[in-house]
Design a protein around this nucleic acid. Structure first.
Length: 439
RNA sequence: UCCUCGGUAGCUCAGCGGUAGAGCAACCGGCUGUUAACCGGUGGGUCGCAGGUUCGAAUCCUGCCCGAGGAGCCA
């Protein structure tokens, strides 16, 4: 008999099915037992009574997370969680858990759960989040594929810093030192010159000693790069992408969003309305005004020209607009060396960060890239970077340099926002953080 | 790296100078519609580690280790 998955159970009412899974919980009341079985697609209640004989005796032996197969008949019953249940005919215990399962149905702290991440991911909340992550990943791919982008890859092992500044993880590479990539961007610029429109979703590594709910040392970025794209086209693409992903999650993952208790009204508004846009200069005024009381009391720092936003500033800006907001035209010196200057004010660059509402902070950073070879060399010099390791990158301007633009989107940050959860560590199966390398 | 809080039973915590506790989990028993079921019983401890103060330390002091929350930095 073929296995039926729990998510399809509604189509099997009145029929005999085979459920293969794990025991999530068991409740018994004398001559009747209720088994809650999970199979990765959902949880179903199965019922067995003393009159069922052998199956009842086997059910008594089942311990939490024991693996099992259950044959029985599906019926609708309002008393069952989810509205459907299986009347058990036969049970096969695949493996009985002999030792006590470490994770209870309630009351655990984050430290304990992270130590048991390999088991924690079995719980309904975690599977809902991971399914949502899958939808985010898949919809990003679909978005780009539908628009004729080519998926290409950037190397993880790199000879030098892409952006020069951030701390990198060092790796022994035979007789040399290599670094784990902190961004695929520079390589994507090269593949964009080969293929026109490119994207990739890959891991990025930052050895920053950050310890906040918004940081991982290993996270996934969706990056895109388009030849002949300018700043305006770049922002339009980003807005379409974010709306597309959210729309897909709302459509296809309503069950998971409900499981997470996510209020979807704000997400629906994000899809319906245009994103806000402010210049960096305007944003300074807005943020300083919004936070003027906290600045006066010394709780938050006042932002001066050239300052980057801190967490409170980012949050205030997100709350103020109540929808995603692009902050654009930053001072050149506070951003990376490769960004194209604003034509009417070369002290600013054609770059933008996208700030999510509801306090979720920056989810995208992007810019138009420098296309002129002389300017690029000058910028490397200004930033105190050597030309030699960037020779291949300079070549992109020597041989048919064109205006081009791109961006990087933080997959976990976007997923955290859509899920409406507190900490991004739950949006990746095995989070890597400053004090956490295991399991 | 800095600031704050914490580490006591498998888990979540109480106890804060005088015999080591509760709830949940586990195990045993009861209950034919449970919903993180309920009711009764049983077992379960190097009180993070090291040193100090004291007649006496889980409790007070010092150092170290580990973790959580926040800051900075960033996606």
């Amino acid at each position: 008999m073929e296995q039926t998955y729990i998510e399809d159970i509604a189509q099997k009412v009145g029929q005999e099915v085979l459920i293969c899974g794990w025991l999530y919980n068991r409740r018994e009341s004398g001559k009747i037992q209720f088994l809650l079985i999970r199979d990765g697609t959902g949880v179903i209640q199965a019922v067995v009574t003393k009159a069922d004989g052998e199956a009842f005796e086997k059910a008594l032996k089942l311990t939490q997370e024991s693996s099992l197969k259950v044959w029985g008949t599906v019926r609708e019953d309002p008393r069952a969680p989810g509205g459907y249940e299986v009347q058990i005919r036969n049970i096969e215990i695949v493996q009985r858990v002999e030792e006590k399962y470490p994770i209870d149905l309630k009351e655990h702290g984050p430290g304990f759960l992270l130590d048991h991440r390999h088991l924690w991911i079995r719980t309904p909340r975690q599977t809902a989040i991971l399914r949502l992550r899958h939808e985010v990943m898949r919809s990003i791919r679909d978005f780009f594929d539908e628009r004729g982008f080519i998926a290409t890859e950037a190397p993880i092992l790199t000879p030098s810093a892409c952006e020069g500044t951030t701390t990198l993880f060092e790796v022994n590479y035979f007789d040399e030192t290599a670094y784990l990539s902190q961004s695929g961007q520079l390589y994507l610029e090269a593949t964009a010159m080969a293929l026109g429109k490119v994207y990739w979703i890959g891991p990025a590594f930052r050895a920053e000693k950050s310890k906040t709910r918004k940081h991982l040392t290993e996270f996934w970025m969706a990056e895109a790069e388009v030849a002949f794209f300018d700043h305006e086209q770049n922002l339009k693409l980003q807005e379409e992408l974010v709306k597309y992903v959210i729309q897909r999650c709302l459509q296809k993952r309503a069950r998971e969003l409900k499981e997470l208790g996510r209020q979807t009204e704000s997400l629906e508004r994000v899809v319906a309305e245009p994103f806000a846009r402010v210049t960096y200069a305007e944003s300074l005024e807005i943020v300083n005004d919004l936070l003027k009381e906290k600045i006066a009391s010394g709780e938050v720092e006042k932002l001066d020209w050239g300052d980057d936003f801190g967490a409170p500033h980012e949050e205030a800006l997100g709350q103020h607009f109540g929808r995603p907001v692009f902050v654009e035209f930053f001072p050149a010196k506070m951003k990376a060396f490769y960004m194209e200057p604003k034509p009417d004010n070369p002290d600013l660059v054609l770059a933008a960060d996208l700030i999510a509402p509801e306090g979720y902070g920056e989810i995208i950073g992007g810019s138009q890239r420098i296309s002129d070879i002389a300017l690029l060399k000058q910028r490397l010099k200004d930033f105190g970077l050597p030309e030699e390791p960037y020779q291949w990158y300079i070549d992109l301007r020597k041989y048919g340099g064109v205006p081009h633009s791109g961006f990087g989107l933080g997959v976990e940050r976007l997923t955290t926002w859509i899920a409406g959860i507190e900490h991004l560590r739950e949006t990746i199966p095995f989070p890597r953080m400053i004090y956490r390398l295991k399991p």
